[in-house]
Design a protein around this nucleic acid. Structure first.
Length: 491
RNA sequence: GCGGAAGUAGCUCACCUGGUAGAGCGACAGCUUCCCAAGCUGUAGGUAGCGGGUUCGAGUCCCGUCUUCCGCUCCA
């Protein structure tokens, strides 16, 4: 048995479509760019990944609770978080060098060269003009300004510019049925991250669930971003799902908690049996405006190492910002005794360690690591091939397939009996058509870990054949042990 | 967003230099079959991404558009 390592990303994408895992959104209308739908097996796999994460966060950690915050949030949320100001800059491209500039950076850079030449007053005038135009979103005026002063690209040296375009990270929509005179009054954003729903509920959760620091709040849910380049299948989508946990800690302890979660999260990945050498950390050198420390957990996809999860030490940035914008105190009273002073730690705004994993990326990770094209040497010397998804049993869409060897002699009746016993406990699939080998292969293609075949011997002694997906080996066990076998593998 | 390539049945592809679409696999319905796909029979499924143009006639040539792929660019 040999595995072909040269399976490309394309083959995995084709397989995902052909077997009902992922479809392009609105495909009959030529599709919607960078939006995808999950099919029957895809949505099961996705749900199983989400459940596994949720359980490992909220059930296995007594100090982590969940919430489900709305996608719509008060617009001020995004002013406080920095998303409005940091991600709505007008951009311009140089057609010759293909280099993209933020318009304000381009003009400021030009002003710097003026200042270097001692033309400071001209520079100041230019900055003033720019700020006026920016405030009015007058892109034509800004472009004129760039041409008027013959601002050129530092790479190509030309003034061959595209029109100015605004890059908006966040999707906007209208809120409320009645239009206001000022359209801005009705704008709400589709959240670009789930984290802010946790932060604005920090005190609600802390008080009602009677949480003591250190504690965490977990949430899974959709988030929306206008990506400049949206490509690579479900790796980068405009609508995607995050699984985030914000862990609130006493200031000064964030360094050790960052280490704890960095390790804890990688262990979660390893617990799925995915080879450790496929993973690596990528520590951030350049940090975001809110971060103290940050790293990514990267996975080696067929297209190279890519980020799947981020662990960020976010300081008290977010809660402080929300306190500032909402004018509501975000303090926590810590009654524990500080050994240094002999007194309680008292009031403070907690620090936050964030773990944030993309559910869709995790889905792709599972699919990529599971997909195998195998060539099998048969006993008669000929070769055979199969496509198999070695999905971890606890994540597999179907857990058990039940086959009567033939569809007569009472075998289907026995199989249906087993089916009705098992299906309340885990997802099963029943099939009686086609040759048994063909049925096995169909289950391999969607990653079903176990197949059970009922044959004539079952009638005599009540045993069945269990066929294992990964090894293709078979064993004979009593039919009433099947349930237990599967349950042991998936819990 | 820019440059290049592609878009024919669910999938992989064929139709050579324009003359009104075919195969394999798959699916479905049967038959056969006592344990690993490629035995047998039958059925369904495509106005050739979409729109326009040239032509007596276009899947085949031209333009536009959408989508996908590759490279560049961006990515808190």
């Amino acid at each position: 048995m040999s595995t072909n390592n040269e399976t490309t990303f394309q083959q995995i994408i084709a397989h995902a479509k052909e077997y009902g895992f992922v479809f392009q959104s609105s495909e009959i209308y030529d599709g919607l760019s960078a939006v995808y739908d999950y099919g029957p097996f895809g949505c099961e796999l996705k749900k199983n990944i989400r459940d596994y994460w949720w359980k490992s966060m909220t059930q296995l950690h007594e100090n982590i609770v969940g919430i489900d915050a709305a996608i719509f949030m008060h617009p001020t949320t995004w002013k406080a978080s920095g998303h409005v100001d940091n991600f709505s800059d007008p951009m311009i491209d140089n057609k010759d060098s293909k280099k993209r500039y933020r318009v304000d950076h381009l003009i400021e850079g030009f002003v710097d060269t003026l200042n270097a030449k001692g033309e400071n007053q001209k520079g100041e005038e230019l900055i003033a003009a720019m700020e006026q135009l920016l405030a009015k979103d007058d892109f034509a005026g800004l472009k004129e300004l760039i041409y008027e002063h013959k601002m050129s690209c530092s790479v190509s040296g030309t003034c061959n510019w595209t029109d100015i375009r605004q890059f908006n990270l966040m999707f906007k929509t209208e809120f409320g049925a009645v239009a206001s005179d000022n359209p801005d009054d009705n704008i709400v954003y589709l959240r670009p991250e789930t984290a802010q729903g946790i932060f604005v509920n920090f005190l609600n959760v802390q008080k009602t669930a009677r949480m003591k620091i250190p504690f965490g709040i977990a949430q899974t849910g959709k988030a929306f971003r206008n990506e400049i380049v949206a490509r690579q299948f479900i790796f980068r989508m405009r609508e995607f799902e995050q699984m985030e946990m914000q862990f609130f800690v006493r200031p000064g302890t964030e360094g050790e908690w960052y280490k704890v979660w960095k390790e804890e999260r990688l262990n979660w990945h390893k617990s799925l049996g995915i080879p450790a050498e496929k993973y690596r950390y990528h520590d951030h050198v350049k940090l975001a405006h809110y971060a103290k420390e940050a790293c990514d957990i990267e996975f080696e996809f067929p297209i190279g190492f890519k980020e799947v999860e981020g662990i960020h030490s976010r300081s008290d940035f977010d809660l402080t910002q929300h306190q500032l914008y909402s004018k509501k105190k975000q303090n926590y009273y810590d009654a524990d005794i500080d050994p240094a002073t002999g007194k309680p730690y008292g009031n403070y705004i907690p620090y936050v360690i964030e773990t944030s994993i993309g559910l869709d990326r995790m889905f792709l990770l599972v699919l990529c690591s599971a997909y195998k094209e195998e060539t099998i040497a048969k006993e008669d010397g000929s070769t055979d091939s199969r496509v198999v998804l070695n999905i971890p049993a606890k994540l597999a869409p179907n857990k058990l397939a039940i086959f009567p060897l033939t569809k007569k002699d009472g075998l289907p009746e026995i199989a249906e009996k087993l089916m009705s016993e098992c299906k309340p406990l885990f997802r099963c699939f029943y099939e009686e058509k086609d040759a048994i080998g063909k049925r096995y292969r169909r289950q391999d293609a969607i990653g079903t870990p176990f197949c059970v075949t009922i044959d004539h011997q079952t009638i005599e002694d009540g045993t069945v054949t269990v066929r294992h997906r990964d090894t293709m080996t078979q064993e004979r066990i009593p039919m009433d042990k099947v349930k237990e076998l599967v349950l042991n593998a998936i819990v």
